[in-house]
Design a protein around this nucleic acid. Sequence first.
DNA 1: CCAGGTTTCTTACTGCTGGTAACTTTCACC
DNA 2: GGTGAAAGTTACCAGCAGTAAGAAACCTGG
Lengths: 203, 203
Amino acid sequence: MSFASPRRPGRPIGGQLVIDRDHVLDAAERVIKREGPGASLEAVAVEAGVTKPIVYDRVGGRAELADALAERLSDRMLEATEDAIAGETLNQASLSRLVRANLLAVAEHRELFLYVTGGNTEQTAIGRLSLAERSTTPLAKTLAFWRKSQGHDPKVAEAWSFGIVGMLQMISVWWITQPERAVDEVASQISDLMWNGLQGPRK
Amino acid sequence: MSFASPRRPGRPIGGQLVIDRDHVLDAAERVIKREGPGASLEAVAVEAGVTKPIVYDRVGGRAELADALAERLSDRMLEATEDAIAGETLNQASLSRLVRANLLAVAEHRELFLYVTGGNTEQTAIGRLSLAERSTTPLAKTLAFWRKSQGHDPKVAEAWSFGIVGMLQMISVWWITQPERAVDEVASQISDLMWNGLQGPRK
DNA sequence: CCAGGTTTCTTACTGCTGGTAACTTTCACC
DNA sequence: GGTGAAAGTTACCAGCAGTAAGAAACCTGG
């Protein structure tokens, strides 16, 4: 859609804006999937059928692109994990399915995941946190509620959610470089660790 | 030491090799500490008092530099965490000290940590795994032994150690961007989560 | 003692990328 | 119709990773 054919400089003949932000972001995802996490903004522009300044106008520079793609990716992953537990109350089995769904979602968007969690060169932390925070914010709320309902201090929720997300991210990176490993086994092992940890201290 | 003054091309007057690998790596650490994780190889060369081809000869390109620095950093962090538990058998209190020592070590080498765990652009995963694997390998051994001694299946050790290291890395990144947060509180919360998780299923 | 090869380092370059300034064409309004 | 805003493109700059080629000192065989 919106095939900006004019190779001619100047305002397009039809008038009005032709290329929207999502068109550029879609192109970016295709390029990253094809060329890997090292894909350049120039390649994104070519894939989108526009020129570089358009990319900068619509989404900003490299850091902002990573941030925008992080938002899209985290939405998809949240959706996938929520589907996995399907409204069921949290228990060991549903947690295992959640971890499994997370691993599979990362594998499906492998290159995109590496791009988003990878370096923004300047402030590397931001890139990794930007994906993480979109997951930790809802997770922290759930955790705080869960803790309170069990008569425990909900204050740990924020730190725990970052810990859990970090665990999932590292396991994902590790797993996608170990293709022979069975996803069910890894998901089961990790969900065991998480589930026991979440129970709080034994009396 | 080894102040290569000759701005003149050609073999140095004293004969023999003058700049060794460690000299370049030391310079790289200083530059990264001063200029942040985005420091260039050119800046490293200047700081070392040499030119770029020397850097490439001694340590290789950007990826190899990150790998070499990851090795140094992981050595220091392992030392710091081992000092924290000081040979004591693993329990909840010593685990908390371990997590605390880890956080403080990351804070001390903040920029270097971000450089090492940050993007190697091309294959981002490698950079993060290279630091992680140096921690997980000994940790997995310890975990496997611990599990066996408690009558549990030691097979989970590898996945668990990656999960734990990922948790620590993410918590570290999060914590160093939240300077107001008390380190003892975070260390205590995270060690709680870990300790309970490690205990295995309750009967 | 000196010619040629070896070691060690520098100069100078290529190719690419992120980012931007300046120009060009069309539209919309009065 | 003329004028300014809108929407693009061309063409550029600066900086960086990485490398090829050359220059000075040292070493070795005759």
